[in-house]
């Protein structure tokens, strides 16, 4: 008993000491922490501020005096009613809903091929990764040339249909988006493949052996062992591509410039045009924030799913 009673205050003391040490540490690192927070948040806070005004660099007043042009939520209500914005958002989502699944399935298929050894694997592997290394602007020019009405794509189609094909891919409002999506799939399937291959290789070999010995077919193993064990990496790969699609710009802009009309205008292209051509910076700030919020929600959702996957 005496031991316990003498011990109690000692531990309490130790605790308060540890606490005050921790608090001292907090105070000492506070300036650095504030700086980091400021660097991370400043651009966003600035955007929030500007988006609530009618400020533009042409107004001749510095940005921090933008409050003189305060308009409250008007930019946001405008945005809600901006059919060009909604069109661009919808187009971006459409590209995402087509490109990400296609890239995922192609990447997964390639990963399945490349997880086993075969002759010429190394050469083919390096070749497959090339598109990912190409500068997106260069890829844009490549596909711009490929999809000309006298370009190789039409030549190839002519060869197969054995009659001259002269499709004006990039100036046809219905086809331009397809050409753009083909370019994106070409360029970014390798990344998907790379991530999924890494995930597939890390699935324990002995579990697969155990499944084979228990009589499981290739498909059963794939769906009950390989895919479930790749869950986290699949979510990461998908999240990366979803976020990247929102940023799709260089390749697309060089191929079509967002046209014809607004036929290939995605969110990034739309923001660029509003900034460069119409110079309504405060409105752009509002759009950017809206997109940031959408992406944050998507990311949080993905991370939640992933954590649940790891627990289960």
């Amino acid at each position: 008993m005496t031991e316990v009673t003498t011990l109690m205050p000692a531990t309490k003391k130790a605790e308060t000491q540890a606490n005050s040490a921790a608090r001292l540490g907090l105070w000492l690192t506070l300036p650095a922490q504030l700086l980091v927070l400021f660097i991370a948040l400043f651009p966003i806070l600035m955007q929030v501020y500007i988006s609530l005004t009618d400020w533009s660099p042409l107004d001749g007043i510095p940005w921090w005096r933008a409050y003189e042009l305060w308009i409250g939520l008007l930019n946001y209500t405008d945005l809600m009613a901006d059919s060009r914005f909604w069109g661009a958002l919808w187009r971006t989502l459409f590209v995402m809903l087509v490109c990400v699944p296609v890239q995922f399935l192609l990447g997964l298929g390639l990963a399945v091929l490349f997880v086993d050894d075969f002759r010429g694997k190394r050469v083919l592997y390096s070749t497959l990764l090339v598109p990912m290394m190409v500068v997106p602007a260069v890829a844009g020019y490549m596909f711009f040339m490929l999809f000309q009405s006298g370009g190789p794509v039409n030549d190839l189609l002519s060869f197969f249909t054995s009659e001259p094909v002269r499709i004006a891919w990039l100036s046809d409002p219905d086809l331009a988006l397809i050409a753009v999506m083909v370019a994106d799939i070409w360029q970014w399937t390798p990344l998907m493949f790379l991530i999924l291959l890494a995930g597939m290789i890390s699935v324990p070999q002995d579990q697969q052996m155990a499944a084979i010995l228990l009589g499981a077919s290739w498909w059963r193993r794939f769906f009950t062992i390989v895919l479930p064990r790749m869950k986290s990496i699949i979510i990461i790969a998908l999240a990366i591509r979803v976020i990247e699609i929102f940023k799709i710009f260089d390749t697309l802009f060089i191929m079509t410039g967002g046209g014809p009309g607004v036929a290939t205008e995605t969110i990034s292209v739309y923001i660029y045009k509003v900034t460069q051509q119409e110079l309504i910076w405060s409105y752009v700030a509002a759009i950017a924030l809206a997109i940031l919020i959408v992406l944050s929600v998507v990311s949080v959702f993905a991370i939640k799913r992933m954590q649940r996957g790891q627990d289960g």
């Binding site: 324990p204 002995d206 579990q207 052996m209 155990a210 499944a211 010995l213 228990l214 009589g215 499981a216 077919s217 059963r220 009950t224 062992i225 479930p228 064990r229 289960g312």
Partner: peptide, 26 residues
Amino acid sequence: VGFVFQNYAIFTHMSVRENLAYGLRA
């Protein structure tokens, strides 16, 4: 052939029941 691995190679993403039933299901 039934095989028990040195490190067991249990399917840790499944329940005990699913592990037991895996071969029967396959």
